[in-house]
Design a protein around this nucleic acid. Structure first.
Length: 271
DNA sequence: ATGGTGGGCCACCCA
């Protein structure tokens, strides 16, 4: 069974519906995980998606900020919406695909929006940075205690960390910038180690090559300056190792009218 | 060192 899965920080689902519909159609996506939907569940535009064949939508929304959604052509079932890091915000949604199994178990998809962490990389002066690290610590603990690395799971989303040197435009100039500080990378590494998660994007692009998914709105010409970061990720547990047969960052979407500042990431899975 | 651009919502918060 071949499944095309995508993740996209959409920066307002309601405002960006034309781009969402265009993306689903042009790229023939089966499952789309959205972050920063910025609306309550009741406000999410279900009808337009159903009309285009995406009849299955699971939500964890909230008013104005954050919020994640997972939508698909095939049935989905919400397993859990978990609060990490002690602050009750809509930043996680775990769904399973009852019709998509590996080793007799339905494949689960964790959709994450990790806190951005504010400006100063200092837990003493910046509560947002402390929250980000707490969130990551909680993720690692929760996975270790509650989950089994032998289960087929996919983790996608905006993790707001670019861990590798070539996940940012300038490693040296980014070392003290939130999203690329060593302490954040250490915390993210612990999350990855908790269930031996595999970085499915880097399986397709060598560590020596630049790979970005986000470009700031503040650049005059995002392509010319190309000061990007890889903030969005796709991980799989060991039982799905090698299942991601193809990966692409859909950079053209960053140039569409009224774009999100994130580009979608697509993986093709053979399950 | 600073400000640059967006979205939600109606005074600012957040990215």
């Amino acid at each position: 069974m071949n499944i095309r899965l995508a993740t996209w920080n959409i920066n307002s689902a309601r405002l960006r519906m034309p781009q969402i519909l265009r993306f689903l159609q042009e790229y023939d996506v089966d499952v789309l995980c959205l972050q920063e939907i910025k609306c309550q569940n009741e406000q999410f535009p279900l009808e337009e998606l159903a009309a285009q064949g995406y009849e299955h939508v699971e939500l964890n929304g909230q008013k104005a900020y954050h919020g994640v959604a997972t939508l698909a052509r095939m049935p989905l079932r919400t397993v859990e919406r978990t609060v990490f890091g002690g602050i009750d915000e809509a930043r996680h949604l775990n769904v399973e695909m009852p019709g998509v199994k590996r080793g007799g178990k339905p494949v689960q998809i964790h959709n994450f929006y990790v806190p951005a962490g504010g400006d100063a990389p200092d837990i003493k002066t910046n509560p947002k940075f402390a929250h980000k690290l707490d969130f990551l610590t909680d993720m690692a603990t929760n996975f270790s205690k509650q989950k089994d690395r032998n289960d087929p799971m996919i983790l996608v989303g905006d993790l707001n960390i670019a861990p590798l040197e070539n996940d940012v435009w300038s490693h040296k100039q980014m070392l003290k910038i939130v999203s690329h500080t060593p302490i954040e990378v250490e915390h993210l590494d612990k999350v990855a180690q908790s269930l031996s998660w595999i970085d499915a994007m880097r399986c397709h692009v060598p560590d020596e090559e630049k790979l970005f998914t986000w470009w700031s709105y503040r650049a005059k010409d995002w392509q010319a300056s190309n000061r990007g970061r890889r903030l969005d990720h796709v991980w799989v547990t060991p039982s799905l190792e090698g299942c991601a047969t193809h990966m692409q960052v859909v950079e053209p979407a960053r140039s569409w009218e009224r774009p999100s500042d994130h580009a979608p990431v697509i993986v093709d899975l053979k399950i």
